[in-house]
Design a protein around this nucleic acid. Structure first.
Lengths: 218, 218, 218, 218
DNA sequence: AATGAATGAGGTTTCATTCAT
DNA sequence: AATGAATGAAACCTCATTCAT
């Protein structure tokens, strides 16, 4: 990103740049098409049209429809995971406004989960787990697993600070997510219908409330 | 039509019986195939072979691949819902062994959810919600919605008995399910890998524990 | 057709009667369907539904779709031919009002040709002549050939009466039909669009006029 | 694009040439197959085999069986019309050998009409007018209508030259065609059986004779 | 590197026909 | 005699992939 004048550079890199741009366009177009019609019903023709390239170009870059799908899923999952980890930076570390701070973080996390692309990736993962079991593992390792670890760490810090009473921080992290998010997918038809902000906030607040009732040090 | 040994009756009933048998075979075969390869990639040929009938027979009975899919989903979802409601009958009503009873019920429920067919239907629903939004509604109405209501009623009874402290039984019902089940799909790769009974039981026990810490009357 | 009480007759004839009724219903239903969608695209299912019988009943009566088609075509063609021959009975034999009488007969004939069923049969014959060459011969022999002979006889009588000057009455008969009818099929899109009576009458009158200019004894 | 030996030019033009060749081969093969088995019973497989291309190539070029049929009909009708109009160039303009010249032109015209492809198109048009009413209009407008106008013009010139006595040249044009052609389709089983040249010539000569008896200035 | 054209394989669906009742 | 159910064959059309340019 921090290049000099690309025109001054030797031929290959700028060509390489165009090549990467095209690759990126293909992958993003593919996510759009896959998420709208599903893996099997997405035609490479449609993806090529959406990306504005010729069909063989896709094969030149990605090799096959299956491989294209793998790249779409892993790259998008990694991007989603990054956003969720960012949200964790606002996690509270002290007693001040514990409930308010937790709710704020939970809302940020839920917003990440409810992001359209994120839900699309999750639907595709659910749909194709039988045919692409390795994809499930890749996404899980690069996404939720890392995230749960990070969240567990934050919760453990609060426990160390004497604010929470936790036996198993990892389990608690799972339960935190379950409490603030689990009801939402069914409310939004797995992310295909938009929800009112107030009903989302109520679910989050109730989840945090239950979490604190269970784990706040008395 | 008026009972009696059907085998002894004249042609029509037994023919009707045979017809229904064939229809049932088709629907069950279709679930197997759909759940293994997905809706779009399931060929009617494969379903016919799995059901042991000729392809046009499927069209005679169900009309189209899409209609077949709808029937598979709604009929299977209704069946799953029935099992879950049965499990609720063992819900505790008194203080005796509250934790133990809740854990027992939760294990039964989780077993229903973890049933292979049940997970397959859920995966297909997740996968096809964009293409079949009405199916989502039908399944939701005939399944989870009814079940959550029933569970909320049971929890409200415990609250009335002075055993739990609940503001919103429906929300609590959602949270109960979230706590005892939510972690499992990711552990089992959305139901495609089997879990050890002890790890499942640990999740359930921890979920019930958190639930009781939050809601047991002190 | 001139029976006593059919109920008094022995079982077979009345059964036979019902059987013939059903056969007739099938053939007439078949013409309707064939003429609307063509031979190949007419499904035996649709014909059975139109006739109000079960599909195998058609096979019991007519043996096969092809045979059914043959019967439809020959029976309808014979019926049409009968009507055309009837129209010839009004053919003039003397000098009185020769033009007026010829026009009247020509109008009747053209009405026969323009009849909806008649046009439908002609379209089907045209369409299937490659696949059913024998049908063409059967229809030709039982219809147009007979009719042309009859018309030629009528014209010859007029010639004998010194009213027309004809070398070849059969050729003249063909030309008469050509002059009064030939333009109409293209005007009516081969019988699929209705024509105004006045434009039809004009064609007929002009045809008769040309015929008389060519053949009236001077 | 600017002439020159196309074989020597760079890729695009010759590729385009190849593409058009393939399209032409498809359309011509399609007419052969359609005319032999009819529209509905013609399989795209058979057309592909006859054209020596793969089935999807047909869909790439023409889009659908129905569209292919439309193109076959309109292109062939236009071609036939061109030949008929060419024949008109030999139409007499002066009194010299009027009968002989008219017979010569009529024979040329009848040869156009009796051409195998031309009869095939007419049969298909007749057969499918119910399902493709727009095709009838398109063919009529690009073919017979133009031709009748041209023929009427030629006849009007003869009238102006004082050779014919015509009130309505368009009607006379229709009648000319009717007299010299109308009998032939039934003689040749709608163009599916070949006729002897002498019987054809006799019909034509008799038709011209009747036409001249009716319209030659006395 | 990128593309237009072509294809083999396989998809859903329809249909004429037969069998058991 | 009449029917509901079942089927084998074949139809139209789509698609992932490759080749020549």
């Amino acid at each position: 990103m921090i290049a000099g004048d690309p025109a001054k550079r030797s031929g290959t890199p700028s060509a390489e740049r165009g090549r990467l741009d095209k690759r990126r366009a293909i992958v993003e177009a593919a996510l759009r098409v896959f998420s709208q019609v599903g893996y099997a019903q997405a035609s490479v023709d449609a993806i090529a049209a959406e990306a504005g390239v010729a069909k063989p170009t896709i094969y030149n870059h990605l090799g096959s429809k299956e491989n294209l799908f793998r790249h779409v899923m892993t790259e998008m999952a990694a991007r989603d995971n990054g956003k969720a980890l960012e949200a964790l930076e606002f996690f509270p570390t002290g007693p001040a406004d514990l409930r308010t701070s937790l709710e704020a973080v939970a809302r940020k996390l839920v917003d990440c989960y409810r992001d359209e692309q994120s839900e699309a990736v999750r639907r595709l993962l659910y749909a194709e787990v039988v045919r692409f079991p390795d994809l499930f593992d890749a996404v899980q390792a690069s996404g939720p697993d890392q995230f749960i670890e990070a969240l567990a760490g934050r919760l453990a810090r609060l426990a160390n600070a004497g604010l929470l009473s936790l036996k198993d921080p990892v389990r608690a992290a799972h339960q935190f997510i379950a409490l603030v998010y689990d009801e939402l997918p069914r409310m939004s038809a797995y992310g295909t219908r938009s929800l009112g902000q107030t009903e989302v906030d109520k679910v989050v607040a109730d989840g945090v409330d239950t979490f604190l009732r269970a784990f706040r040090m008395r």
